[in-house]
Nucleic acid binder design. Sequence first.
DNA 1: CTTCTTGCAAAGAGTTTGCAAACAA
DNA 2: TTGTTTGCAAACTCTTTGCAAGAAG
Lengths: 138, 138
Amino acid sequence: MRNFEELTKQMEAKGIKPSLQRLLLFNYMQNCHEHPTVEKIYADLSAQGHALSKATVYNTLTLFVQKGLLRIVQLDHSEARYDILTNDHAHFICQKCGMIYDVPVDFDQLHLRFDDAGSVSQRDIFYRGVCRRCMNRE
Amino acid sequence: MRNFEELTKQMEAKGIKPSLQRLLLFNYMQNCHEHPTVEKIYADLSAQGHALSKATVYNTLTLFVQKGLLRIVQLDHSEARYDILTNDHAHFICQKCGMIYDVPVDFDQLHLRFDDAGSVSQRDIFYRGVCRRCMNRE
DNA sequence: CTTCTTGCAAAGAGTTTGCAAACAA
DNA sequence: TTGTTTGCAAACTCTTTGCAAGAAG
């Protein structure tokens, strides 16, 4: 919960007014690396004694995505999960336990050659399979 | 609508019993390369005079995904779109017009190095941006 | 004041499910 | 028969929205 001035600066740099709820959410997302769902974010912040509505969680996360602070990790038709946008990484999704792992990856090795692409603003890579932990469990 | 024997073989090879509705849907997906939504699939097949319910479209597509004939392309929280699983290709999504382009890509250049990955069964790459057609339109 | 943000509850979209009828083996 | 597939409608989940109250400048 420290370092709010730094967070404020980052948000203002993206054109977002730093209200209390927005700071709370941004701070939470900065420190959460498990790609949480709206439900989890809401539950965690509520448990910490912060008052904010689920609608505000939805609306604020959507705002953050639009402003380029977060990205949505949408798997099939389940709940959306959110991910702080840092340096590029891929995602590995375990089909047994549902866990999402970050995978370091060098996107530039891909050499995308595609004439219909005017401009590219975001790149996402997903691997699906079974993680080592689940494999060992069998 | 020809070639049903071939389709039947492919479906049986994946452990799917070839009912009429399933053949219709599989045949449709084989020949549709625009990543259609359930709504579009249902509308197109209905317009062709085929009787099948939307629930069956949903259930059958889900079956096909589970059996590895199709993949879901789920963008944010909009409708799911379906894609026949052929040789690897990435997707480029235009954020203006919503069109999804197929992009040839060599996945093996990525050299995924990730110790927690036990086994990998599927790889998806998404690029987002603005397509050339939309850029030229401005 | 004036504008932006929040929160509740209701609406909405897309998808899944229960169950009975139809079909296939 | 015995098991599988279909289809309708209802239920469900996740997300968005309208609007009034509240906070900020």
